[in-house]
């Protein structure tokens, strides 16, 4: 529960930072930045939070379900703009996937890195 409390606390701190300072980033991303700062600064030890974090990130999709249901409810209301929306969303999603992936691959440092990736992901 300690890990869970720490993650909740950083989430709250992010929301607070967003509300007080009006930083143009959502509270949860600010919370992530603060949390990373705490991990790198050794304020928070990895072993305190690892188990709780794995539980939450392992079920990340669960937390998106309410948004999907809300989005599905809006689909019948699109009307005349439906074609434009479908083309825009589909086209641009694949464009971003391809451009980001290709640029990442082309700019990757070349020296035995592939080998290292395989080892780390195993």
């Amino acid at each position: 529960m300690r890990g869970f409390a720490i993650l909740l606390g950083f989430g709250l701190a992010g929301v607070l930072l967003h509300d007080v300072l009006h930083v143009p980033l959502p509270g949860n991303v600010l919370g992530l930045l603060l949390f990373l700062g705490a991990l790198f600064g050794k304020v928070v030890k990895l072993e305190w939070v690892e188990e709780s974090a794995n539980l939450l990130t392992g079920h990340l999709l669960l937390f998106f379900i309410p948004y999907v249901i809300g989005a599905a409810a809006l689909i019948p209301l699109l009307g005349a703009n439906a074609v434009s929306i479908v083309v825009g969303v589909v086209g641009s999603t694949f464009a971003v996937l391809w451009v980001t992936g290709t640029v990442a691959k082309k700019t990757a440092p070349k020296n035995k890195k592939e080998e290292q990736d395989d080892r780390l992901s195993a």
């Binding site: 992010g14 929301v15 991303v29 919370g31 949390f35 990373l36 990895l46 937390f63 249901i69 409810a73």
Partner: peptide, 27 residues
Amino acid sequence: IAEFQGEVGLLTTLLGPATVALGVPIY
């Protein structure tokens, strides 16, 4: 659907700490 979304507010709230938790794999 609006009432359903109200009922699952806990899950949308937990998306905050779940996003924070992504700091662990990054670190």
